[in-house]
C-alpha cells in the first residue's frame, strides 16, 4: 500500500506550525520583557554602587579601616564602626539563629495545628514586614529602660535579632515543609522519636533553606539604621569596646556587651550630614564597604547552600 501525500494533510500541518510559531512568539515577548526589567534593575544598582566606589575611591586604604573618626576628614576612619557592626551582628546571630530555628521547628513539628497556630503564623509573617523603627521604639522601651541594658552592643544586638527573628522562623518553616513526607515516615518507621527525627533529619535537611533566611536577615540587620539610632547609638566614638578575647584565662570576656558603640550605617549617616564635602567622600567609601560586606555574606551563603544542597536530592 502506498501512502499518498494528501494536500489536506499538508494544510493541516501548516496550520499546526503557524500555531506553534504564534505561541513561541509569546515566549519570546515574555523572555525579552523579563530580560529588560532585570537588566534595568541590575544596571541601576550597578551604577549606584560604582558611583559610591568612585566617590569614595580616595579613601580606600588601610588607614580608613584602622582609624577612629576624626574632626579632620582626611584622617577619619571607620575602625569603631566596623568593629561595632561586627560585634552587634555577632550578638544578633547568636540570639536570632538558635531562637528562630527552635521556634520554626516547634511550630512546624510539635505545635498542634489549630486556629491559634494559624494566628501565630500570620503574626510571624507579618512581623517580617513591620517597619524597623517600630522595633527600635520597642527596644528603647523594653531593653534600654525596662531591662536597664543601656545603650549598649547587647541592646543593639537584641534589637536587630528581633528584626531578624521572623525571617529566620519563616524560612525555617518553609525549609522543613519542603522535606518530603516519605523521608519523614521512613525515619519514624524505624522507631525514631519526634526529637530524633528533628535532630537527625528535619533540621539537617533544612540547613540550606535556613541558611538563606539567616543571611537575608543578617544582610538586613547590617544595613539597619533607624532602630539603632532609636536606642541611642553614639555617632562619634573614638574608643573600642573591650576585646572579647583576652590573653589571660578565661580568655573570653563579655564586658564588650555593655560597651557603647556605633555601626557602619550610623557612621555613614553622620558623615553625610556634615557640610564639608570631604566627609561626603568618607560616607561614600563607607557605603561601598557596607555593600561589599553584604555581597560577601550573600556570596558565602550561596556557596554554602549550594554545597549543602548538592548532597540532598529528593
Amino acid at each position: 500500500m502506498t501512502i499518498q501525500n494528501k494536500p489536506a494533510a499538508n494544510k493541516n500541518l501548516d496550520s499546526i506550525r503557524k500555531t506553534i510559531a504564534n505561541h513561541k512568539r509569546h515566549d519570546f515577548i515574555f523572555a525579552s520583557l523579563g530580560t529588560l526589567v532585570i537588566a534595568s534593575l541590575t544596571i541601576t544598582l550597578l551604577i549606584l554602587f560604582l558611583d559610591l566606589v568612585i566617590d569614595g575611591y580616595p579613601r580606600f586604604n588601610l588607614d580608613f579601616f584602622s582609624n577612629f573618626p576624626s574632626r579632620r576628614a582626611a584622617r577619619a576612619g571607620i575602625l569603631s564602626a566596623w568593629i561595632g557592626s561586627s560585634l552587634v551582628l555577632l550578638v544578633t546571630f547568636f540570639v536570632a539563629v538558635p531562637l528562630g530555628i527552635t521556634s520554626g521547628v516547634y511550630l512546624e513539628e510539635y505545635a498542634k495545628k489549630n486556629w491559634f497556630s494559624d494566628l501565630i503564623e500570620i503574626n510571624v509573617s507579618n512581623l517580617a514586614g513591620v517597619p524597623s523603627i517600630i522595633y527600635g521604639l520597642l527596644a528603647l522601651g523594653l531593653f534600654v529602660y525596662s531591662f536597664g541594658l543601656g545603650q549598649s552592643i547587647l541592646t543593639a544586638g537584641l534589637t536587630l535579632a528581633l528584626l531578624m527573628l521572623p525571617i529566620v522562623i519563616v524560612s525555617t518553616r518553609e525549609a522543613i515543609r519542603s522535606i518530603p513526607v516519605h523521608i519523614r515516615e521512613a525515619a519514624y518507621a524505624v522507631g525514631a522519636t519526634k526529637w530524633q527525627v528533628c535532630r537527625n533529619h528535619v533540621i539537617p535537611y533544612s540547613y540550606g533553606g535556613i541558611l538563606t533566611g539567616v543571611i537575608i536577615g543578617m544582610a538586613r540587620a547590617i544595613g539597619e539604621t533607624a532602630p539603632v539610632i532609636t536606642i541611642g547609638a553614639l555617632t562619634f566614638i573614638a574608643f573600642l569596646p573591650p576585646s572579647p578575647i583576652g590573653l589571660e584565662p578565661p580568655f573570653i570576656n563579655f564586658d564588650w556587651l555593655e560597651s557603647g558603640f556605633t555601626v557602619l550605617p550610623i557612621q555613614m549617616f553622620n558623615w553625610i550630614s556634615r557640610p564639608q564635602l570631604a566627609f561626603h567622600v568618607n560616607a561614600a567609601a563607607t557605603g561601598a564597604v557596607i555593600i561589599m560586606l553584604t555581597l560577601l555574606m550573600n556570596g558565602f551563603a550561596i556557596k554554602l547552600r549550594y554545597n549543602i544542597r548538592k548532597k540532598i536530592k529528593w
Binding site: 518530603p180 516519605h182 523521608i183 515516615e185 521512613a186 525515619a187 519514624y188 518507621a189 524505624v190 522507631g191 525514631a192 522519636t193 530524633q196 537527625n200 533529619h201 535537611y205 548532597k311 540532598i312 536530592k313
Partner: peptide, 28 residues
C-alpha cells in the same frame, strides 16, 4: 515500630551515606 518494620512504595533512603542509612535504626 521497633518490632515491626516497614518498606515503602518509593525507595526512600535518607540523604546520608549507605552505612548511616542502615545503621540508623540501630542508632535510634
Amino acid at each position: 515500630r521497633m518490632r515491626i518494620s516497614m518498606v515503602f512504595q518509593k525507595p526512600n533512603p535518607f540523604p546520608k551515606s549507605i552505612y548511616e542509612n542502615v545503621a540508623y535504626g540501630l542508632r535510634v
